[in-house]
Amino acid sequence: MDILQFVIERFNYWIFTVLMMVGLYTVIARGNLVKKIIGLNIFQTSVFIYYISIGKVSGGTAPIFTTEHQKELKKHEHHGDAHHGDGHQVPTHQDGGHQDTAHQDGSHQGDAHDSADPMTMDLHAGDLHAGDANTSATLTRAGEHHGVSTPDLHDGDANALHAPANDALVSQGGDHGGDHGGEIATKATEFIEPLYSNPLPHVLILTAIVVGVATTAVGLALAVRIREAYGTIEEDELETADNVAEFGVADPRQQQDGGQGAGRLNPGGAQ
């Protein structure tokens, strides 16, 4: 049972591994230049799948605020301003340790004060500004997460979140099913914030997709040029052509490793 659980939890990552292996194999083992580029594409796409899998949250939804959520946020907007001073967004380093729970009420339901600690955003060194409205919003919602999904596991254990996988697994448990339904129902006469998948991997992969297609374009342009210059895009034939031009033999590998020098402004030293 545990093993089955273990396999299911990692299935996506293994599939990514297999796809990546297929792509990598295509790149290394195939000699056709276009095919190599296609192999690179498979390879890169498999990495995209990996990243997106990291960011998935069970029971989550796409990271776009639902209309209800937006309305809810609007309601609390004045609160945010009140805490905020000039309303201009100054990003701040946050330190959950300096948070007092007083900031949290008003912003949200605030049903999980003690679980704010796990979300501690303990950034490097001293430059910490204590929480403004933004900060408290962050922490409150973190609290809710825990409050909703695993209400009984969080007694302010500051390491729960950043602890290695196993701990996280424990706290995850078999949640997100319907078993906290009752708990939610008691409090959920008001609005419940939806659970969103992690947007960061999506952002990264959007960039990576564009980088990938740029590389593909340059690689294919090179393949076209090679076809024009050599009349072939098969790696073996390219090698033979270079060897013939240089040594007059198709396979001089037994002679030496390095190449002879290039000639004047013409290829292969073919004087």
Partner: peptide
């Protein structure tokens, strides 16, 4: 961490802060 784990470091830390 298990696939879909909301409390994994990747999902709980910076990713969550963006949300």
């Amino acid at each position: 961490p298990a696939f879909g784990d909301a409390n994994s470091p990747a999902n709980a830390y910076v990713g969550q802060a963006y949300v």
